[in-house]
Design a protein around this nucleic acid. Sequence first.
RNA 1: GUGGCUAUGGUGUAGUGGUAACACAGAGGCUUGUGGUGCCUUUAUCACGGGUUCGAUCCCCGUUAGCCACCCCA
Length: 471
Amino acid sequence: MSPKKKSAPAKKPATKKKVADKKEALSPAVAKQEKKTQKSYQNVRGMKDIVPSQGGQWLRMFDAARSIAESYCYGYVETPIVEQAQLFVKSLGRGTDVVEKEMYVFEDNEGTKIALRPEFTAGIARSYISHGMLSLPQPVKVWTVGPLFRHDRPQSGRYRQFHQFNCEVIGERNPVSDAELISMAYNFLRDLGLQAEIHINSIGTFEDRQNYIVELVGYLRSKRSYLCENCKKRISKNPLRVLDCKELGCQEALEDAPQIIEWLSAASKDFFMSVLEYLDELRIPYVLTPTLVRGLDYYTDTVFELFVDGGKEQSQSALGGGGRYDGLLEEIGAREATPASGFAIGLERVMLALNKKEKEEQEGSDVAGSRHPAGIERQFFFAQLGEQARRRTLALIESLRKSGIQLGSSLAKGSLKAQLELADKMKSTHSIILGQKEVQDGTVIIRDMDSGIQEIIDQKKIEHHLRKLMK
RNA sequence: GUGGCUAUGGUGUAGUGGUAACACAGAGGCUUGUGGUGCCUUUAUCACGGGUUCGAUCCCCGUUAGCCACCCCA
């Protein structure tokens, strides 16, 4: 556990004589091995542990995701964490940052190029095709949750392994799907207590976009001298990105820039208007954001992102996003055109927003109730005293658990004091105490932790009694 | 990938060129039959490696990690 303690590279021989002696007694091989274990390991860069104190909240997000998805009748799927690297190259686009610099790619023993999934959509689309889901009643609506990997430079809200809640509707081109997905994302956050702001835009079909880009590049060239260095480079590399540059100069230069909406085909324009109308119908507030473009090549028509706290001022403040990808399935091998739409929400970012909100609320009220450090709370605690009582307790707890009553306990502890201390930390309202005397009598003491009032009841009536207290 | 800042026990902090203080948390005990409020003991060679120095936790360099901004995104 704490190898540090034994680390004594004899830098200060005078004070470390004892340790040095002990060291000499060890054979060189053993000493070497010990030295190896001295250094403690740290987690791989950008990878985070979930520790018990966060575990409850983490699971609550999963529960919220599940109940949202199930209430909209989405089926749960899981795809492998690894896929052929080529799948992502094809679907996300060769030039995108995600593929170009952030993907974990390696060769397996057979020399196949494998990638750790940087996002869900491609894998789910592949799964849809591999399993012939196009012969299922359309559309196929699925959801999933799990880890994704991107080799980015870590910072707040950005990790190399992160988790998303993801929903997809495959096999339907209808604005109502897009609206439904947006409302799911919105309601998911609302269920967790977060008010989301939805930024929405349409980037049309591939052709619409190509035409627009030509026009935009022309415009940007004419304003080139007003743009920041970064944007000058972006003109050729990724012109759409210039639109949401934060530099004031660039924003001013963009005032008369052509807007993508004006370049949409009639079909795309109608489609987008319908999405917005459905959102109005659902009473979901949104912000039209003509500058919103997304980083992956597969998007068509509707694109959206979700923010909390008034939006974009902060970096990494997008909790999630999504959009329509009508071309993707065909691109990766579907026999016929298979339109689809989906969204993903970053769970670490939701966590961040949740914690931030909690902090703000606590500042106001300062009733910051201390939580059990390991995040475990139980209404009832079973304390025992003496070996006989311990054995009896083992059996009693087991039968109570089987009947659905969960109890805190610490069978390893000897003193009653220590056990009641724990009961207190677990915020138990009642403790059940079993000592030698009670073992003889076949009874048990129930202690009310607030008032200190205790009553003696028959062991057979514990379950009945606890159930009464649960109300 | 680029730039800036930081690095002291489990956590949050103090401090000094002569090997570290405080609070909280943890473990054990005072009391093998009673917690939420007492007391005691215990838990760190000051991230790692190298240099300067009689001597470094403190100064310098490197590494690693964290944070922030850019890039990008969830």
